[in-house]
């Protein structure tokens, strides 16, 4: 039985944690740091450095990390879901929601 994947919460009011290890779908993740939960089940594969929702976040509600709004939910997010470009948008950078979900590559630049 491999050790439980770890995640880290920066601020007590954050609604996301950052993965320190890769988590498989269904894995029980240990939550370190300042959060109110100590464990959460991953609903999908989440890579290290990426974020997991610690609670349900409704569409248009802020994503909170470091105790501040780092973006807004573009759809309803369930606890344990991966929070990234497909469900969280910048308040400023209009390109952030157009990038490739996995590589981060721009999709709005023409190469032909």
């Amino acid at each position: 039985m491999p050790a439980s994947p770890r995640s880290f919460v920066v601020h007590a009011v954050d609604n996301v944690a950052t993965l320190l290890d890769r988590a498989e779908a269904g894995a029980t993740i240990t939550v370190l740091g300042d959060g109110h939960v100590t464990q959460i089940e991953a609903r999908e594969v989440i890579e290290p450095g990426h974020k997991i929702a610690l609670c349900a976040i409704a569409a248009d509600q802020p994503i909170i990390k470091f105790g501040v709004r780092i973006g807004r939910a573009t759809r309803d997010i369930a606890p344990g879901q991966w929070v990234h470009l497909n469900n969280c948008a910048s308040f400023l950078d209009e390109r952030s929601s157009t990038l490739d979900l996995h590589s981060g590559a721009a999709t709005d630049t023409r190469y032909a």
Binding site: T18, I63, F66, C88, F91, G104, A106
Partner: peptide, 17 residues
């Protein structure tokens, strides 16, 4: 904005983050 594809691939979602 001072954020790159490598940052996004590494898990950063927005410039604010």
């Amino acid at each position: 904005w001072s954020v790159s594809p490598g940052n996004f691939a590494g898990g950063l979602t927005t410039i604010e983050e």
